[in-house]
Design a protein around this nucleic acid. Structure first.
Lengths: 241, 241, 241, 241
DNA sequence: TATGAATGAGAATTCATTCAT
DNA sequence: TATGAATGAATTCTCATTCAT
C-alpha cells in the first residue's frame, strides 16, 4: 500500500480482537481516529501506545483487549486507509474499461483524483508517506506480504492496457515501467506536499484551491509530459537508439 | 547528502572528540565499522549505542569519550560516507567539462559509477537509503543544513549544462526536471537492490558480475531510455501537446 | 517555607499524579515516609530516587507513575511539611488577635510551639534545614515562587503588630528587623539541635522532656532576652547613639 | 571556618601531595585558582574534578598526582581561604589589646574589615557561604573537626573581653551569645550580598563604593544597634525581666 | 470486560578513579 | 612524573506489557 499517492492495496486482514468490533461505534471511531492521528504524526517506531490511549480517552488495559500490540493497530490502520483509498478511487475514477481508454488521459485523471483524496484525507496521506519511509524491514515485509496478494496496482493495470492498445512504446519492459511510475508518483507527492506547505504559509484558507490553481496545474502537466515524452530535446536525443 | 544514490554532498564537520582521533587506527576503524553497520541496518531512531559499543567491543564509558551522543556519531558517519562517495566519483567519473559533454552519456557514466560504488560499499548505500527516509525533520535539517553549503548535486549541474547545450527540451522547468530525475534515480536504486537480492539468492559469488551482466545492462538502458524518451509510443502520444 | 524553624508558608500545589492519590493509604504513606526520610537525610542534590524506592519498597517504574522526577517529590514533600507546620501552629499558637497582643510573649509562645513541633517532627525540621541551605538557586526560586504567594510569615506579621502597638523600637527598619529575627531564629535552631544531640547522648529516652527541662527553658529565656534587650550592659552601651 | 564572614579558623593540614608542592608556582597557582573558582561557583557536591582540570589546564591524570580526590582539594582550599582571612584580619583589625578596648566599636571595626575582605575576595566569600550551607554532615564534621582545634573565633575572644570589662551584660551566657552573634553575622553577610547584587545591577562600576555608601552604613549601624540594644522599645519592654 | 496499577527491561548519560605508556 | 585513555558503577527516565480486581 501507499507506495505513493496513487498506489494502494486492498486488504482485509482482521487484526483487532472481536471485543474491539463489539465496541459501540462512537468508541471504536474514537480509537481509530486517535490511531490515525498518531501514525500520521509519527513513524511506527516513534508512535506510542500512550499517545493513542490518551487521545482516544481509553484506559491502558483496554488497549490490550482490543489489540495485541502497536504493530497490530498499525496494520489495522494501514489496512483501513488502503480500503478507504480504493473505495474513493472506485467511486471517483472512471473505470478503464472499453475502447475509449487512453493511458495518458487516464493517468491525468488518476493524478487529479489522487490529489483530491490527499486534500480530503491529509492524515491518510501522511500515514502513507510514513509507511513508504518505514525502514524496519521485517515490519514492511510483514505488512506488504499480507497485503500484496490482494494488492491492486492501478498503474500496472493501466500500463498493460496502454501497451495493449499501442499507446505505450512496446519495447518497454512493463516491470521497469511500473517501478519508474511508482517513483515518479512519489516525487509527485513530494511536489504536492511542498506546494501545500507554501500555500498554507501564504494563504491558509485557499489550500483547497490548490488543485484548480493554474500554476500547479502546469506543474502537473509538466510532470506528466516528462513521463510521457522524456527529457530529451527531441531532435537531439540519440543515446537510446 | 544521499538524496538518492547519485546525489551527495561534501562535508567536513568534525564531531568526534580529539580523543577519538588520537585512537590507534585499528580501534578507530573498529568503531567506525560498528557504527556504519548499525546505521546501515537501522534508522537513526532505531539505532542504539548499545549495539555499536558491543560490535566495536568498547566499554560504555569509552563511547562517551569519543562522541557526545548518538546524533554525533550519526553525523560523523553520514559525513564520512559522503566524503567517500565524492572521492569515488571524482576518481571515477569523467568530469563534465569541455565541448564533448553529452547529458545522456554522462548520465549513463554516472549510473554505472553509482552502481559500482553501491556494489563496493553496500552498507554506505543502505545508510544513504535510511537517511533519505529519515522522518525526524529537525535532525534532517540539521544534517542537511550543515552539509548543504558544500553540497554538490551532480544531476543539477549536468541538467543545466544539458539545457545550455540544447540537449534537453528547453520548455522543461529545471526544478521539476530535477524532481523527475530524482524519482528516476530512486527507481533505479530500487531496481538495483532487487537485482542484487535475486543474484544473492541465485549466485551469491558473482554479485560482482552484476554490472557486466547483460540483462542488467539492458535494464539500465531501458531506464535511461525511459528518462530520455518517455513512455509514449511516439506516433501516438498526444496528451501533452 | 522554612526560612527557619519558625517561618513557613502555606501551599497546596499538587504535583504527584492522580495515580499516586489513588493508591491505598498504606502504600502512599510508605512512599511519603521514604521521601521524607530521604530529604531529611540529604539535600536535594544528594537525594536519590533509588533510595526512596528502596525504602518505600516499590519498583523503579512505579515511582515514575507517581511523580515525574525527583524535583516533583521534593516539591510535594516540602509542601506537605509546610502544611503540617501551619496546621500545627494554627492549632497550638494563640492567634495574635485583639488588644491583648504582646510581641514578646507571643514570640515565646511561638518558640515553644516551634520546638514542640520540631521535637515531634524531627525529620520535617531536618528537611526545612536542608531547604534553607539549598544552593540550587533556580530550584529555590521555583519552590518559593510557587509558595510565596500563600506564604504567611508569622514573624513579619507579629513585627508589624508590635511596631503598631509601640512595643518595638519605632526607629528600627522593619526589613532589617526581619533579617535580625531570622538570624536569631537560626541561632535558636542550632542551639536546639545541639541540646538535642547532648540529650540523645546522655539520656536518649527523655529527649521529650527537653522542653520542660529547666536549663533549656533558661536558655530560651536568655535568647529572647538577647533579642529584646541586646548584648549591652545597659549603662555602658554607647555605640549606636 | 566561615561560619560567617567574620568567623574563621586557622588550619594547616597539608592535603595535597608533595608532588603538588614541588610544582612551579605558576602551575600551582593555576590549579588553586581553578579550584577556588569551582568551589565559589558550586557546592562541594556539585563541584566536579572535570571543571577544575579544565580551568586549570592540567591533564586528568595529573590531578590524581596532586590530590587523592575532590574532598582533599576542597579541604585544602577551605584551609587556604581561612589562612588568607586570618592573615587579612591580623593585618587590618587593631588587635583587641590594652585598656582602650571597646566591644562595640571593635565589633564595628570587625564588620567593616569583614566587608572589605569580602569585597576584595568575593570568591572566598562565596566559598565560605557554600561551606556554611554544606549539608553533607560527615564532610562538615571532618573539616570542622580537623580545623576546629586551631579555630580562632574572634567573636568569642572579644566577647569574653567585653564581659570582663563590664561592657556586656554579665547575665548573658557567653556560649549563647556567641551562637547568636554567629547567626547575626551570617544574616549580615546575606544583607551584604543582597546589597551587592542591587549595586551590581544599578551601577556595576561603583560596587567598591558600597562600604562608604551612606545608606549601607546606616544599615550596618542598625544591625549593630539591634545586636547591642535589642528590639524592644525600651520603656515598654517587659518580658525578659 | 473494563480498569488502571505494577513491573522490569532497556536506553542514555555522567564521572570518579585506575592504568598503561 | 606526566599524560590521557579506559572503565564501569550509578543514575535518571521510558514504556510495552502483565496482572489483579
Amino acid at each position: 500500500m501507499f507506495k505513493n499517492h496513487l498506489t494502494f492495496f486492498k486488504g482485509a486482514v482482521s487484526l483487532p480482537t472481536q471485543t474491539f468490533f463489539n465496541l459501540p461505534e462512537e468508541k471504536k471511531n474514537r480509537i481509530i481516529r486517535a490511531a490515525i492521528q498518531e501514525f500520521a504524526a509519527y513513524s511506527f517506531d516513534q508512535a506510542s501506545i500512550a499517545h493513542i490511549i490518551e487521545n482516544a480517552g481509553i484506559p491502558r488495559g483496554s488497549f490490550y483487549q482490543y489489540f495485541n500490540n502497536l504493530k497490530d493497530v498499525y496494520k489495522y490502520i494501514i489496512n483501513l486507509a488502503g480500503e478507504q483509498k480504493i473505495k474513493y478511487f472506485q467511486e471517483t475514477v472512471p473505470q478503464f474499461e472499453g475502447k475509449g481508454f487512453n493511458f495518458f488521459s487516464a493517468l491525468r485523471d488518476l493524478c487529479t483524483a489522487g490529489f483530491q483524496f490527499a486534500l480530503e484525507n491529509p492524515e491518510l496521506l501522511a500515514i502513507g508517506n510514513n509507511f513508504i519511509k518505514e525502514t524496519n524491514k521485517s515490519l514492511r515485509d510483514e505488512i506488504l506480504g499480507e497485503q500484496l496478494p490482494k494488492a491492486q496496482n492501478f498503474y500496472e493495470t493501466m500500463l498493460h492496457k496502454g501497451i495493449e492498445l499501442g499507446q505505450i512504446d512496446p519495447h518497454i519492459d512493463p516491470h521497469i515501467a511500473t517501478l519508474f511510475i511508482g517513483a515518479w508518483s512519489t516525487a509527485f507527492t513530494e511536489l504536492y506536499l511542498a506546494e501545500l506547505k507554501n500555500l498554507a504559509h501564504d494563504n491558509p484558507e485557499d489550500v483547497c484551491a490548490l488543485l484548480t490553481n493554474k500554476q500547479f496545474q502546469q506543474k502537473i502537466d509538466q510532470m506528466i509530459d516528462l513521463l510521457v515524452n522524456g527529457l530529451a530535446n527531441k531532435p537531439f536525443s540519440t543515446v537510446s537508439e
